[in-house]
Simulated scan of single mutants.
Amino acid sequence: MTELFGQTHDAAGLAARTGNLSQIGGVRLVTCGDGLERGIRMLEFRTGSGLSFSVLVDRAMDIADVAHKGRAIGWHSPTGFRHPALHEPEGEDGLGWVRSFSGFLATCGLDHILGPEEVDASSYDYPRRNTVRHGLHGRVGAIPARLTGYGERWEGDRCILWAEGVVTQAAVFGEVLELHRQIEADLGGNDIRLTDRVVNAGFSRTPHMMMYHVNIGWPLLDEGSRYLAPVGDVVWTSHAPDLAVQDTGYRICTAPSATFREQVWEHAMVADTGGIVPVALVNDRLGLGIVVESRRDQLPCALEWQNFRSGLYALGIEPATHHVLGNRFARDRDEMIWLEHGQSRRYDLRFSVLDGAKEIAVAEARISAIARQPESAFPAPSGNFAPLDHQIGSAG
């Protein structure tokens, strides 16, 4: 059954009340027509509950806008949603990615995440290419998807809004990796479900890394907004040793500042009995929040990105396959994921809107029951990068 506007309806009841389901919700394919976004295909989702979001088909099927009852949740940067043809993946010593960085979800990977690096490429067995240079957060985020389907389907009296596509990141004498992405939401619901499968479609042994850069903006992000997470240990920070240099701890968000310098934290999260790690940002004044759920056996590392600079105001919740120190660090510790031909990895995420103080309190109690995060705003990082075993429970 579907709950909408305080009533419960079956499929026949909704059909009797609407000339077309699009009156209350659904998925619509549109194409942007102006500026840097011109030509980008976008899927607009409306669940009828007040949740709306858009999927950028031509940018790895990432999620651009997210809003609930007119209140923005997803972050927009000054770059806009640039058409992939304008992307500069090799530019600015590997930092060209920041000229196309915007939206609620920016997928990072598929063979590299985190800062620019040059690493060994001998697994591809091509004499002219001994190394490969990676820019910030990899290449996948600016690759158009092949849209394999979208729409609304009924499973009994439950209506599911859905979209599926395939993103191919490939090079001759290099990686041939496919991202198979499925996005779903229920009519009447406040959740977005994302399922990814990354497949090595080539015949060379290929490295794989993945990170989900989930970016939250104003008004959900505001002075006093709270970061809630089952933090078992604070592992690393970008601004040690003086953690209080900007008077901004990991737990409570501050107002925008023209001189703020980004801060990154890596936390070791504790999962619940089902292996789920829920991380939330909540705004008590608005009675609004978002929970990002990931599986610890799929994404064992967790980063928090604080970008509280004026005009760039954002907070990132970032589940990842690898530690914050990047590609070579993973290789040196024998923690890189290597995919042989046909092998795959699966990732499952859920983004849930919290509407009202009661839902915020329930989420906070749930997270605290898993692990009580450090009370200190400036917990000293332990430097304990736990060994990663990518063989457990995460293969596709």
Rank of each mutant, 00 (worst) to 15 (best):
residue 1 M to L: 13
residue 4 L to V: 08
residue 6 G to K: 00
residue 9 H to V: 08
residue 13 G to D: 00
residue 17 R to K: 09
residue 17 R to L: 15
residue 19 G to I: 03
residue 24 I to D: 03
residue 26 G to D: 05
residue 27 V to F: 05
residue 27 V to D: 07
residue 29 L to I: 10
residue 29 L to R: 08
residue 34 D to M: 14
residue 38 R to Q: 10
residue 39 G to T: 02
residue 41 R to Y: 11
residue 43 L to I: 08
residue 45 F to Y: 11
residue 51 L to A: 08
residue 52 S to W: 00
residue 63 I to F: 10
residue 66 V to C: 04
residue 72 A to L: 05
residue 81 F to S: 08
residue 85 A to G: 12
residue 86 L to D: 05
residue 87 H to A: 14
residue 89 P to R: 03
residue 91 G to F: 00
residue 92 E to W: 15
residue 93 D to P: 05
residue 95 L to R: 05
residue 104 F to A: 02
residue 111 D to F: 04
residue 114 L to C: 12
residue 117 E to Q: 12
residue 121 A to M: 04
residue 122 S to K: 08
residue 130 N to P: 14
residue 131 T to I: 12
residue 139 R to S: 13
residue 140 V to P: 03
residue 152 E to W: 11
residue 168 T to G: 11
residue 169 Q to S: 13
residue 170 A to C: 12
residue 173 F to N: 14
residue 174 G to Y: 06
residue 177 L to H: 04
residue 179 L to M: 15
residue 184 E to D: 10
residue 185 A to P: 07
residue 187 L to N: 02
residue 197 R to T: 12
residue 200 N to L: 07
residue 201 A to H: 05
residue 203 F to N: 10
residue 204 S to D: 12
residue 207 P to K: 04
residue 211 M to L: 14
residue 219 P to A: 08
residue 221 L to E: 01
residue 222 D to Y: 00
residue 227 Y to Q: 04
residue 232 G to A: 13
residue 233 D to N: 10
residue 235 V to K: 01
residue 236 W to A: 04
residue 237 T to L: 05
residue 239 H to W: 05
residue 242 D to L: 15
residue 244 A to V: 11
residue 245 V to K: 13
residue 246 Q to F: 11
residue 248 T to M: 14
residue 251 R to I: 10
residue 252 I to H: 13
residue 254 T to C: 15
residue 256 P to Y: 01
residue 257 S to R: 13
residue 263 Q to F: 09
residue 264 V to R: 01
residue 270 V to F: 10
residue 273 T to A: 15
residue 285 R to I: 13
residue 291 V to N: 00
residue 295 R to Q: 08
residue 298 Q to C: 11
residue 299 L to H: 01
residue 304 E to M: 10
residue 304 E to I: 10
residue 311 G to K: 03
residue 312 L to N: 10
residue 313 Y to K: 00
residue 316 G to D: 00
residue 317 I to K: 00
residue 317 I to E: 02
residue 322 H to E: 04
residue 326 G to I: 03
residue 329 F to D: 06
residue 331 R to K: 12
residue 331 R to G: 13
residue 332 D to L: 07
residue 342 G to T: 09
residue 345 R to F: 12
residue 351 F to V: 02
residue 354 L to Y: 09
residue 355 D to P: 06
residue 357 A to I: 11
residue 359 E to G: 05
residue 359 E to H: 04
residue 363 A to P: 01
residue 363 A to N: 02
residue 371 A to V: 09
residue 374 P to A: 06
residue 375 E to A: 15
residue 376 S to I: 10
residue 379 P to C: 06
residue 380 A to M: 15
residue 382 S to T: 10
residue 390 H to Q: 04
residue 394 S to H: 03
residue 395 A to P: 01
